[in-house]
Simulated scan of single mutants.
Amino acid sequence: MNKKHLAAYAIVAVLFAASGAYVGMNKNNPAPPLTAVPPPGVTEPVAALYKQTLPDAKGVSTPLAQYKGKAMLVNFWAPWCGPCVQEMPELSALASGEEGKKLQVIGIGIDSPTNIAEFNDKYKITYPVLVAGMSGTELSRQFGNAQGGLPFTVLIGADGQVKKTYLGRLKFDELRKDLATL
Rank of each mutant, 00 (worst) to 15 (best):
T137P: 00
D111E: 10
V46R: 00
G148N: 04
L139N: 01
K101R: 11
G160K: 03
E174K: 07
K70W: 08
I125K: 02
Q147V: 11
G69L: 14
A48H: 10
K171R: 15
P45I: 02
N29A: 08
T43I: 07
G133R: 00
Q142Y: 08
A21C: 13
P151K: 11
M88P: 01
A10Q: 07
K27F: 12
A71K: 02
V105S: 06
K177G: 09
L49Q: 06
K27R: 12
I116H: 00
P151Y: 07
E174N: 14
P63I: 05
G109E: 02
L94G: 00
K4M: 10
A180V: 03
G136C: 04
K102T: 13
P45K: 06
I110E: 09
L6T: 04
K177C: 04
F143M: 13
T181R: 14
A31L: 15
P63E: 04
A18G: 08
E174F: 11
P38D: 07
L179M: 06
N29D: 15
T126N: 15
D173T: 08
D121T: 03
P45D: 12
Q142N: 10
D173G: 04
I156A: 06
A146Y: 10
P89V: 03
A13M: 15
R176V: 05
N2D: 13
L64H: 04
D178F: 15
K124E: 09
D173R: 02
S92A: 10
V105E: 03
M1W: 09
D56A: 07
L54S: 02
K68L: 07
V60C: 06
S112R: 13
V60R: 10
I110Q: 05
A47K: 13
L6W: 10
G136K: 01
K3M: 15
G109N: 03
Q161D: 05
M1K: 09
A95E: 00
V46I: 12
K102P: 01
P33Q: 08
G133E: 11
W80N: 05
M25K: 11
K124S: 11
P45C: 11
G148E: 08
L103I: 03
P30T: 12
S140E: 14
G69C: 12
T165I: 08
Y50E: 05
S61D: 14
F16M: 14
L73A: 08
Q147W: 08
P55L: 07
G20K: 02
S112C: 05
W80E: 06
A65S: 15
A146F: 12
S19E: 11
T35L: 07
L155E: 03
A78V: 01
A146S: 12
V23R: 13
Q66G: 10
A180D: 08
Q52G: 05
V131I: 09
G97M: 11
G59R: 06
L49T: 00
A93Y: 12
G144H: 12
I156N: 03
G160H: 04
K102W: 14
T35K: 09
T43Y: 13
L179Q: 07
N115Y: 05
Y67T: 00
G82P: 00
L182A: 04
E87M: 07
C81R: 00
L64K: 01
E118T: 01
L170C: 08
A78C: 04
A13H: 04
M72P: 00
L15A: 15
Y127G: 01
L91I: 03
